[in-house]
Lab assay of single mutants.
Amino acid sequence: TYYTVKSGDTLNKIAAQYGVSVANLRSWNGISGDLIFVGQKLIVKKG
Score class of each variant (00 low, 15 high):
residue 26 R to E: 07
residue 17 Q to W: 13
residue 37 F to N: 10
residue 46 K to R: 13
residue 45 K to F: 13
residue 9 D to P: 00
residue 24 N to R: 08
residue 3 Y to P: 01
residue 24 N to Y: 08
residue 29 N to H: 01
residue 10 T to F: 04
residue 14 I to P: 00
residue 31 I to V: 08
residue 18 Y to E: 07
residue 30 G to R: 08
residue 36 I to N: 02
residue 27 S to N: 11
residue 1 T to G: 14
residue 27 S to W: 11
residue 36 I to V: 09
residue 43 I to R: 08
residue 32 S to M: 14
residue 16 A to F: 12
residue 39 G to D: 07
residue 4 T to M: 07
residue 30 G to E: 12
residue 13 K to D: 12
residue 35 L to A: 11
residue 6 K to D: 06
residue 39 G to R: 03
residue 16 A to E: 12
residue 25 L to F: 02
residue 44 V to N: 01
residue 19 G to I: 05
residue 7 S to I: 13
residue 5 V to C: 05
residue 41 K to I: 15
residue 8 G to E: 06
residue 1 T to K: 10
residue 36 I to W: 03
residue 10 T to L: 04
residue 43 I to L: 14
residue 9 D to W: 01
residue 42 L to C: 02
residue 21 S to Y: 04
residue 22 V to Y: 03
residue 39 G to W: 03
residue 2 Y to I: 12
residue 21 S to F: 04
residue 2 Y to V: 10
residue 22 V to M: 09
residue 21 S to C: 06
residue 16 A to W: 10
residue 7 S to T: 13
residue 24 N to H: 12
residue 11 L to Q: 02
residue 7 S to N: 12
residue 39 G to Y: 03
residue 39 G to S: 05
residue 16 A to P: 03
residue 27 S to Q: 12
residue 31 I to H: 03
residue 30 G to I: 07
residue 12 N to V: 13
residue 19 G to F: 08
residue 42 L to E: 00
residue 42 L to H: 00
residue 2 Y to H: 12
residue 8 G to A: 06
residue 4 T to C: 08
residue 40 Q to I: 05
residue 24 N to D: 15
residue 31 I to G: 03
residue 26 R to S: 07
residue 28 W to I: 06
residue 21 S to D: 10
residue 41 K to P: 06
residue 2 Y to G: 05
residue 34 D to S: 09
residue 36 I to D: 02
residue 28 W to C: 03
residue 39 G to M: 04
residue 1 T to Y: 13
residue 7 S to P: 13
residue 6 K to L: 11
residue 5 V to G: 02
residue 30 G to Q: 11
residue 24 N to S: 13
residue 40 Q to G: 04
residue 41 K to L: 15
residue 41 K to N: 11
residue 38 V to W: 05
residue 38 V to Y: 06
residue 10 T to M: 05
residue 22 V to G: 04
residue 29 N to S: 03
residue 28 W to Y: 05
residue 33 G to E: 11
residue 8 G to I: 03
residue 9 D to S: 02
residue 44 V to S: 02
residue 29 N to D: 00
residue 19 G to T: 07
residue 32 S to Q: 14
residue 43 I to N: 06
residue 3 Y to T: 04
residue 37 F to A: 09
residue 33 G to R: 06
residue 18 Y to G: 03
residue 8 G to M: 06
residue 13 K to G: 13
residue 23 A to S: 12
residue 4 T to Q: 09
residue 26 R to Q: 13
residue 31 I to P: 02
residue 45 K to H: 15
residue 31 I to L: 15
residue 11 L to I: 10
residue 24 N to M: 12
residue 9 D to G: 01
residue 26 R to L: 11
residue 20 V to G: 03
residue 17 Q to C: 09
residue 37 F to T: 12
residue 14 I to L: 07
residue 37 F to E: 11
residue 4 T to V: 14
residue 2 Y to D: 07
residue 42 L to N: 00
residue 6 K to M: 12
residue 38 V to R: 06
residue 3 Y to R: 03
residue 3 Y to I: 09
residue 36 I to E: 03
residue 22 V to H: 04
residue 41 K to D: 09
residue 26 R to A: 09
residue 8 G to Y: 05
residue 3 Y to C: 04
residue 33 G to K: 08
residue 38 V to G: 05
residue 25 L to Q: 00
residue 7 S to A: 14
residue 37 F to H: 14
residue 3 Y to L: 04
residue 29 N to M: 01
residue 35 L to M: 13
residue 43 I to A: 06
residue 7 S to E: 15
residue 25 L to H: 00
residue 33 G to I: 06
residue 29 N to F: 01
residue 20 V to Y: 03
residue 46 K to M: 15
residue 20 V to A: 07
residue 7 S to K: 11
residue 30 G to A: 12
residue 20 V to P: 02
residue 35 L to R: 11
residue 37 F to L: 11
residue 41 K to W: 08
residue 43 I to S: 05
residue 8 G to F: 06
residue 12 N to Q: 14
residue 14 I to K: 00
residue 28 W to L: 07
residue 11 L to F: 05
residue 33 G to W: 05
residue 31 I to A: 03
residue 11 L to S: 01
residue 37 F to G: 06
residue 16 A to K: 13
residue 11 L to H: 01
residue 10 T to G: 03
residue 16 A to T: 12
residue 9 D to K: 01
residue 9 D to M: 02
residue 22 V to F: 03
residue 46 K to E: 15
residue 47 G to T: 11
residue 36 I to Y: 04
residue 43 I to F: 09
residue 19 G to N: 14
residue 38 V to D: 08
residue 42 L to K: 00
residue 45 K to P: 07
residue 30 G to M: 11
residue 27 S to L: 15
residue 27 S to P: 01
residue 19 G to S: 10
residue 9 D to R: 00
residue 44 V to A: 04
residue 25 L to P: 00
residue 29 N to Q: 01
residue 31 I to Y: 03
residue 35 L to S: 12
residue 39 G to N: 07
residue 34 D to M: 08
residue 41 K to M: 15
residue 45 K to L: 15
residue 5 V to K: 00
residue 12 N to F: 13
residue 22 V to W: 02
residue 28 W to M: 08
residue 24 N to I: 10
residue 40 Q to S: 06
residue 18 Y to T: 08
residue 23 A to D: 14
residue 26 R to G: 04
residue 23 A to P: 09
residue 28 W to E: 04
residue 21 S to K: 06
residue 6 K to C: 05
residue 46 K to W: 15
residue 26 R to N: 05
residue 3 Y to W: 04
residue 1 T to H: 14
residue 21 S to V: 05
residue 47 G to I: 15
residue 26 R to H: 06
residue 24 N to A: 10
residue 15 A to K: 02
residue 15 A to I: 02
residue 23 A to G: 11
residue 9 D to E: 04
residue 20 V to H: 03
residue 36 I to H: 02
residue 31 I to C: 04
residue 3 Y to E: 02
residue 37 F to V: 10
residue 47 G to W: 10
residue 1 T to C: 07
residue 30 G to C: 08
residue 4 T to N: 07
residue 9 D to F: 01
residue 6 K to P: 01
residue 10 T to E: 05
residue 12 N to R: 11
residue 3 Y to M: 05
residue 28 W to A: 04
residue 42 L to M: 09
residue 27 S to T: 14
residue 4 T to A: 06
residue 9 D to I: 01
residue 6 K to E: 13
residue 39 G to Q: 04
residue 32 S to L: 13
residue 43 I to M: 12
residue 18 Y to P: 00
residue 36 I to F: 06
residue 32 S to R: 08
residue 37 F to Q: 09
residue 45 K to E: 12
residue 37 F to S: 11
residue 5 V to S: 03
residue 4 T to S: 07
residue 32 S to C: 08
residue 41 K to Y: 09
residue 16 A to D: 13
residue 40 Q to N: 05
residue 11 L to Y: 03
residue 35 L to G: 09
residue 25 L to D: 00
residue 7 S to Q: 14
residue 19 G to W: 06
residue 24 N to P: 02
residue 42 L to Q: 00
residue 13 K to Y: 11
residue 1 T to S: 12
residue 7 S to M: 13
residue 37 F to R: 09
residue 23 A to T: 12
residue 32 S to P: 10
residue 39 G to C: 05
residue 21 S to P: 09
residue 29 N to A: 02
residue 16 A to S: 11
residue 20 V to R: 02
residue 18 Y to F: 15
residue 40 Q to H: 05
residue 20 V to E: 08
residue 12 N to C: 06
residue 35 L to T: 11
residue 44 V to P: 01
residue 22 V to L: 10
residue 8 G to S: 06
residue 32 S to V: 15
residue 5 V to Y: 02
residue 5 V to A: 05
residue 9 D to A: 02
residue 1 T to I: 12
residue 18 Y to K: 05
residue 43 I to P: 00
residue 23 A to L: 09
residue 9 D to H: 01
residue 44 V to L: 07
residue 39 G to I: 01
residue 16 A to G: 09
residue 28 W to H: 03
residue 43 I to K: 08
residue 34 D to Y: 09
residue 42 L to I: 11
residue 10 T to D: 09
residue 28 W to K: 02
residue 12 N to A: 13
residue 9 D to Y: 01
residue 45 K to M: 14
residue 11 L to A: 02
residue 20 V to F: 03
residue 2 Y to E: 13
residue 36 I to G: 02
residue 42 L to A: 01
residue 25 L to E: 00
residue 39 G to F: 03
residue 3 Y to H: 12
residue 25 L to T: 01
residue 45 K to V: 13
residue 43 I to G: 03
residue 45 K to W: 15
residue 6 K to A: 11
residue 6 K to S: 11
residue 29 N to G: 01
residue 22 V to S: 07
residue 6 K to R: 10
residue 12 N to T: 11
residue 37 F to W: 11
residue 35 L to Q: 12
residue 6 K to H: 09
residue 12 N to M: 15
residue 20 V to K: 03
residue 14 I to C: 02
residue 40 Q to W: 05
residue 9 D to C: 02
residue 41 K to G: 07
residue 12 N to E: 14
residue 41 K to V: 15
residue 45 K to T: 13
residue 7 S to L: 13
residue 35 L to K: 12
residue 29 N to I: 01
residue 23 A to I: 11
residue 40 Q to L: 07
residue 13 K to T: 14
residue 44 V to C: 05
residue 15 A to F: 01
residue 23 A to W: 06
residue 16 A to C: 08
residue 43 I to T: 07
residue 28 W to R: 03
residue 2 Y to R: 07
residue 7 S to Y: 13
residue 34 D to E: 10
residue 20 V to T: 12
residue 20 V to L: 08
residue 3 Y to Q: 02
residue 15 A to E: 03
residue 18 Y to N: 09
residue 4 T to H: 10
residue 45 K to A: 14
residue 30 G to P: 06
residue 32 S to D: 12
residue 28 W to P: 01
residue 47 G to D: 15
residue 11 L to M: 08
residue 33 G to D: 11
residue 19 G to H: 12
residue 30 G to T: 09
residue 5 V to F: 03
residue 23 A to K: 10
residue 30 G to L: 10
residue 46 K to G: 15
residue 14 I to V: 08
residue 29 N to R: 00
residue 14 I to S: 00
residue 23 A to M: 09
residue 32 S to Y: 13
residue 4 T to L: 07
residue 35 L to P: 07
residue 35 L to C: 09
residue 4 T to F: 09
residue 36 I to P: 05
residue 25 L to V: 06
residue 46 K to N: 13
residue 21 S to T: 14
residue 6 K to Y: 05
residue 41 K to A: 09
residue 16 A to L: 14
residue 14 I to W: 00
residue 19 G to Y: 08
residue 13 K to A: 14
residue 18 Y to C: 04
residue 33 G to Y: 07
residue 10 T to I: 04
residue 15 A to R: 02
residue 20 V to D: 03
residue 17 Q to R: 10
residue 23 A to F: 07
residue 44 V to F: 05
residue 23 A to N: 10
residue 9 D to V: 02
residue 33 G to L: 08
residue 11 L to N: 01
residue 22 V to T: 10
residue 13 K to C: 08
residue 15 A to M: 03
residue 42 L to V: 08
residue 10 T to H: 05
residue 18 Y to M: 11
residue 10 T to W: 03
residue 21 S to M: 06
residue 21 S to A: 08
residue 19 G to M: 10
residue 38 V to H: 07
residue 4 T to K: 08
residue 20 V to I: 11
residue 12 N to S: 14
residue 21 S to I: 05
residue 17 Q to D: 15
residue 33 G to Q: 09
residue 43 I to H: 07
residue 28 W to V: 04
residue 20 V to M: 06
residue 27 S to F: 10
residue 24 N to Q: 14
residue 35 L to N: 11
residue 6 K to I: 14
residue 3 Y to D: 02
residue 13 K to R: 09
residue 45 K to Y: 15
residue 22 V to N: 05
residue 2 Y to M: 14
residue 13 K to N: 12
residue 43 I to W: 10
residue 15 A to N: 01
residue 30 G to H: 14
residue 3 Y to G: 02
residue 27 S to R: 09
residue 40 Q to D: 08
residue 2 Y to C: 10
residue 16 A to N: 12
residue 40 Q to C: 05
residue 21 S to W: 04
